[in-house]
Nucleic acid binder design. Structure first.
Lengths: 184, 184
DNA sequence: ACGACACTGTAGCATATGCTACAGCAGCCG
DNA sequence: CGGCTGCTGTAGCATATGCTACAGTGTCGT
């Protein structure tokens, strides 16, 4: 049992380092040998500690989602932003350099999820939920709106703008110019 | 030049068949040997006609984007939908079985584009533009709104909802319940 | 001291992938 | 007929990937 603790500590360490890797290189970039090399070990070690790549990815994505939660929490200032300003606020936040790796990874996960990959579907669903809760906590909703519904729409809009930012920046800019019109 | 015509006809044929493949299996699924097998030929032939996989992908994506244009054109009924109904309209359209492969492929392209892949960035930008033009043609915009800006926002919203549909369906449903609120 | 056990390195396997080399076959033009 | 050209199959190469086999090293408890 003492050994188990050390082992899982090491696993956490590795998973965190690999989370860095995945966040700034992408899901496809994570193959055992190169990733291990970057950490100064060998693929052999990664398999030793995680058994299989799937298990490894599980831990890595766990780290990523924890980090996202931390990041979201760190942006929460205690004040509840009025609804009409929130879309612009989140949208700007997602374009931030710190948030960008998360967004890119999010898109990769969404694409796999859309193709029916259950593993990423589950992970993506959890992340979406984290966003929703964060939005609900951060926004002051007027009476009469169902917070969860409004938050969901905000998330959709913000995701859509981020998607366009990554594909057709000029279109994204055009969309942003209408942000204040759609308070959600 | 006679031979060139036959050759490019064959290329088109192959590219169309491969477009089917990519649309319902995904970008990752297109590797030479399996794809060729599905067409009853060998990887050797694909390389013969296209020279390189990148060149092949170029043609395949060309077919896909042509098909999307055709599809969009086919849904255009000549009437201009009022702005407030359009988001719900497109959103429903994108959830359609015929549109789904396009949407899934679109997400894959967006993810690669976000990661800085220039090839897919260009392709994705063209597709976004096709959507925008289609929306502008299909919607009646009231005076005072800049059509392109409003269309861009609509596209963002609809993309966002589609993204949530593929990752967190319940969140997507919540967002949909607010669609009429955000006329864009 | 010694054996058990956690750890780690070296090789290797099986498979996949993009691409190339070479050779055969068929048809067309002279 | 003979050669040239367009097409196609068979093999193979080089690299990558997830994973396994085997053996060695070090530490720790008895």
């Amino acid at each position: 049992m003492g050994y188990t603790k050390a082992r899982s500590a090491k696993r956490l360490l590795l998973a965190e380092a690999l989370a860095d890797f995945v966040l700034d290189e992408g899901l496809d970039a994570l193959s055992l040998r190169p990733a291990a090399a970057r950490l100064g070990t060998s693929d052999r070690m990664l398999l030793y500690y995680f058994g299989t790549k799937a298990e490894l990815m599980d831990h890595v994505l766990g780290c990523v989602s924890d980090r996202l939660s931390d990041y979201l929490a760190s942006t929460f200032r205690g004040i509840r932003i009025p609804q009409h300003a929130m879309v612009a606020h989140i949208s700007a936040l997602m374009a931030t350099p710190e948030a960008k790796p998360f967004v890119e990874l999010w898109f990769e996960m969404a694409a796999r999820s859309a193709r029916g990959d259950q593993f990423y579907a589950d992970a993506a669903a959890r992340i979406a939920e984290a966003w929703i809760e964060w939005i609900m906590r951060s926004v002051h909703f007027p009476n009469g709106v169902v917070p969860r519904n409004a938050a969901a729409m905000m998330l959709a809009i913000v995701n859509g703008i981020a998607l366009l930012d990554s594909t057709a920046p000029s279109v994204a800019a055009a969309a942003r110019s209408r942000v204040q019109t759609v308070a959600a």
